[in-house]
Simulated scan of single mutants.
Amino acid sequence: MTGYLTTHVLDTARGCPAQGLKIELFRIDGETRTHLKTLTTNDDGRTDEQILPATEFATGDYELVFHAGAYLDATGTPPETPRFLSVIPIRFGMSEASHYHVPLLLSPFGYSTYRGS
């Protein structure tokens, strides 16, 4: 099997996919953090392409950075100063060449993630 990485973001407070949320992908190598890609979620809360397709896949440590504050601002969620959740980094490891799916369930005051399928 060939490895690749996907995500989706669900706005649990509004009960819908999180459209227009900026996501950045970084590779982590010791203390070095290398930016690989920036994508934005579509109408379904997913990216239009795999975040890390099979042709670019390598095992190792990665970080997805979800720009939740800008998304919440754009949806008209009442802001606080500062916003409780602004940027959500999720660090994870990929140890084998398989499909890794790292979703984000988001609300203004909390989030969760898991290894999906």
Rank of each mutant, 00 (worst) to 15 (best):
V9S: 08
K22M: 08
G76L: 10
A13K: 11
A13V: 03
S107C: 12
L52N: 00
I90D: 05
G20D: 11
L72C: 14
L52C: 03
H101T: 01
G76R: 01
G93W: 06
Q50A: 12
S98K: 11
A70W: 00
R33A: 03
L25Q: 04
Y100E: 04
I90C: 13
T6F: 11
G30D: 06
R46W: 06
V9Q: 08
L52S: 00
N42F: 14
Y111C: 11
Y4D: 06
R46K: 11
F84R: 14
D11Y: 07
T81Y: 12
E96C: 07
L21H: 01
E31H: 15
G3T: 01
H8E: 09
P79F: 12
S98L: 07
A70V: 06
G60N: 00
Y71I: 06
D48E: 12
I88Q: 05
D73R: 13
F66H: 04
P53V: 04
T41F: 05
A68M: 02
T55Y: 02
L36V: 11
M1S: 05
S117K: 14
T6C: 13
E24N: 09
E49K: 11
P103M: 10
Y71D: 04
G60L: 04
S95M: 07
P89M: 03
G15S: 10
H99W: 08
R91N: 08
L106S: 13
Q19W: 10
L104D: 00
E49H: 09
H101W: 10
Y71L: 13
A58S: 09
V9T: 05
Q50V: 02
A18Y: 00
P17C: 12
L36D: 08
R14D: 00
S95Y: 06
Y111I: 05
D11W: 01
F109A: 13
P78V: 12
E56N: 06
E56C: 02
A54F: 08
F84L: 15
V9E: 02
T59N: 05
T75P: 00
G116M: 10
Y4E: 03
I90S: 09
G60F: 01
L25C: 09
G69F: 01
T113L: 10
T12C: 13
S117I: 07
L10F: 14
T77I: 02
R115Q: 13
G30E: 04
L36F: 13
A70T: 13
G76W: 04
G15A: 10
R46P: 07
G30M: 10
L36H: 12
T12I: 14
G20V: 06
R27C: 06
D29M: 15
F26E: 03
P17E: 07
Y71R: 11
V9A: 09
V102R: 09
P108N: 08
R27F: 08
P78R: 14
R27Y: 05
T34C: 09
A68E: 05
T40M: 08
T77N: 04
